[in-house]
């Protein structure tokens, strides 16, 4: 549920902010993750979902041809090639943001406990 809320939030703000802000929005999910693994997975989803949503919105509102051509540009015969690259880049950025936030949270927590 949190992932969906954060993804919707990302979708709203990323249209006004530079591409790398997906790292920042995804960091929120890192702060509420309970393990490295969930922070990785949730981060990937939080990065990929808003990008994928926007990708499909563009695809269905006139972008199919340019998506197909960009896919060809990067060596794919089908538009799915561009979609995969979009998921991977968005997801990777989200993953990084989430992982950093989770690591920060964990380090802060451990420090607090030991104190």
């Amino acid at each position: 549920m949190n992932i969906i809320v954060i993804s919707i939030f990302s979708l709203l703000v990323l249209s006004q902010l530079p591409w790398w802000f997906v790292v920042v929005t995804s960091s929120m999910v890192g702060l509420i993750s309970r393990s490295y693994l969930t922070s990785l997975l949730n981060g990937f989803l939080c990065g990929a979902l808003p990008w994928l949503t926007m990708f499909f919105y563009k695809f269905h509102t006139g972008g199919e041809l340019i998506i197909t051509r960009v896919s060809a540009m990067i060596g794919f015969e089908h538009w799915i090639g561009a979609m995969i690259v979009t998921i991977l880049i968005g997801g990777f950025c989200g993953l990084l943001g989430s992982l950093c936030a989770y690591s920060f949270k964990k380090a802060f927590k451990d420090q607090f406990k030991s104190a």
């Binding site: 990323l14 340019i66 979009t86």
Partner: peptide, 15 residues
């Protein structure tokens, strides 16, 4: 990152 960003990259040119 810049190019495949569906908000501001090449997809911003749709239509």
């Amino acid at each position: 990152g810049k190019f495949f960003d569906p908000f501001h990259g090449y997809l911003a040119l749709t239509n």
